[in-house]
Amino acid sequence: MFRHSLRTLVVGLCALTAASPAATAMALTGSVPGDQHLGAYTVTRALHARTLADLATGMKGEAFAYASYSLFAVQADREGRPAVGRLFRATADTELNEHLRQAAALAGTVGTDAADLRQAISGETYEHQVMYRRFAAQARADGDLMAARLFTELAADEGRHRDAFRAALRVVTTGRGTVPPPPVADPVTVPAGLPKVKAARTLANLDTALHGEALAHAKYMLFAAHARQTGNAALARLFEGTAKVELREHFAGEAVLAGLVRTTRQNLRRAVTGERLEATTLYPGFARRAAAVGDTAAARYFRDTAADEARHATAFQQALDRLR
C-alpha cells in the first residue's frame, strides 16, 4: 500500500469514509460480494470504535494504493518496462480486491442498497457543498488558478452524483420510477511530471482529494457488486459508472496537478518506502490496538496485511535494483 500522509492518519474521515453505522450497532456477520478471502476474518460482535477507525484508515490507504499503482503501471509501460508494469498492476489488484475488501467486510461497510445510497449521498453532499468549494477558494487565494478551476468543476460533478443517488434512493425505497443512467467518464491521461501548483496548502488539499476519490471509487464498486447480488442491475450500473468518473476523471485530473506520477525509478522508491512503513509501523500498531480491545479477527487481518506489505516492499525493491 502507498504511504499514508500524516494528514490522512490524524484527521477524521468525512462522511463518505465512515464505516456503516450498523457496524457499531450490531454484530458484523456479512461479507463483501465477490470476495473469497474473508473466512478467517469473519467476526460476530461489534468492533471497538478505535478498530473501526483503523480499518477506515487502512481502506483509504489501500484504495489510494490501487489508484496510484495503476497509474505507475502505465508509466512503466511508457518507459518500456513491462515487467515493472505487471508488478504494479498485480500489487494494485491485491490492495483493492483482497486488503480493502477484507477491511470493508470487517467494518460492515456494505449494507442494504438503500443504506449504501445514503452513505454515498452523504459523501457526495460533503464534497459538493463543503470540501471542494473550500479547496477552490483556498487555491484561488493562493494563486493556484488551475487547481481552483478543477476543484470548482469537481464540486459541480459531485452535486450531480448526489442528485443521481437521491433519485435512485427514491426508486429503491418506493419501488416507483427509474434509476438514473450512469455518468460517462472523460478519462484524463496522467503523464510523469512535477506538481503544477505552488502553494503547500493546495498540494495538501490535492492529497486529501486524491485519497477521497480513490476511496469513493473502491466503495462504489463494492456497492455495485451488492446491487447486482440483490438483482438491481440498474443501480449497479449507476454505482459502476460513478466509480469510473471518480477514478479515471477526478483522481486522474488531481494526480496531474499534484505531480503524483514520476519516473518509474522514483515511483518504485516511493512504493518501497510506503510499503515498509505499513509493514513495520502502521499495520502492526493497528494489530496491537485491536488485540488489546479483544478484536481478534481484526488483529489477525492487520497482522496478515502487514506481512503482505512486507512482501510488496521486497518485490518493489528487487524491481528497483534491476533497473539500469
Rank of each mutant, 00 (worst) to 15 (best):
Y132W: 07
A298D: 08
S20M: 12
A192D: 06
A234Y: 11
G212L: 09
A114N: 07
R176K: 15
K198V: 09
F2A: 13
A90H: 00
Y283I: 00
E246T: 13
L55G: 02
S5Y: 10
F251M: 09
R269T: 13
L6P: 00
E246W: 10
A65G: 15
A46T: 14
H37S: 14
A156E: 14
T125P: 00
T314I: 15
L215Q: 07
A164T: 03
H226A: 05
A103G: 09
E98K: 02
T94H: 04
H312W: 04
A214L: 01
A315M: 11
D77H: 12
P21W: 13
D207F: 07
L100W: 12
V130N: 04
A148M: 08
A136L: 07
A139G: 06
F151Q: 01
A103Y: 05
Q129K: 10
E254W: 00
D207V: 10
G143Y: 13
R140M: 10
V84M: 02
A23W: 07
D93Q: 06
A40D: 15
L13G: 04
R45S: 11
D157A: 11
N232C: 04
T44I: 11
A73G: 10
V197T: 12
Q318C: 05
R322N: 07
T152P: 04
R300T: 14
V32Q: 04
R176L: 15
A168V: 06
Q119W: 09
M131S: 11
Q317A: 15
D304V: 05
A279Q: 03
Q102V: 11
M26C: 05
F88M: 06
M1I: 12
R45A: 10
A53H: 04
E127G: 01
I121R: 01
R300H: 11
A214D: 07
L16W: 14
T242V: 13
V256S: 01
L203C: 05
A167N: 09
R160G: 06
